[in-house]
């Protein structure tokens, strides 16, 4: 399966199957895309573990930051990589050393590493490349349409409202 072929149901299934997400390369700066993703995923109920050696021990959006994946005390369902395509290989290798194994290796928009993807798939770990989980969640829930962005989805069913104003969830 190439990155262009991820179906909506595949992505939605993945996002619905995870509870804990490690975000490698998360920034404490509130204008960086990685910060946006940490904040958004927390607001959607995920337990987020930022990974950033330069910021270890401090908080990003109230979540404790770790120096490496191995330092995280809880089992991680999904590793989201906010680093370069080259760096994604070593991060994937580190992720595949975790016990228990993560279910998903996710590489952000513009990040692709086929070698890393092959290693992960060999261990039955699902791979997503060149996508943003925030954009995908917002697209599949319908929230992204509030900004005039094409969800590429049509439905005559009532959208699923999440708690509070202006919040959608996944069905």
């Amino acid at each position: 399966m190439t990155e262009e072929d991820y179906s909506d149901s595949y992505i939605e299934g993945l996002l619905a199957s995870v509870k804990t997400v490690a975000i490698v390369g998360a920034s404490p700066k509130n204008v960086r895309p990685s910060y946006f993703v940490v904040k958004y995923l927390i607001s959607k109920g995920y337990e987020v573990f930022p990974v950033n050696p330069g910021h270890a021990g401090r908080d990003i959006c109230g979540a404790r930051t770790y120096g490496s994946l191995a330092d995280i005390p809880d089992p991680i369902d999904m590793v989201d990589i906010f680093r370069s395509s080259e760096a994604a290989l070593q991060i994937t290798k580190d992720a595949l050393e975790l016990n228990p194994l993560p279910k998903i290796i996710w590489m952000q928009l513009t990040i692709r590493n086929e070698e890393a993807a092959t290693l992960a798939r060999k261990k039955n770990v699902q791979v997503v490349m060149n996508r943003c989980p925030k954009i995908e969640y917002a697209r599949l829930s319908g929230e992204i349409g509030w900004a005039g962005v094409a969800s590429r989805k049509i439905s005559a069913r009532k959208p699923k409202l999440a708690k509070g104003f202006q919040r959608y969830g996944l069905s």
Binding site: G145, A150, I154, S155, A156, R157, K158, P159, L161
Partner: peptide, 10 residues
């Protein structure tokens, strides 16, 4: 007919 126009969620 359908793009962008889901039923109102409330």
């Amino acid at each position: 007919v359908h793009a962008g126009t889901k039923p109102d969620p409330v």
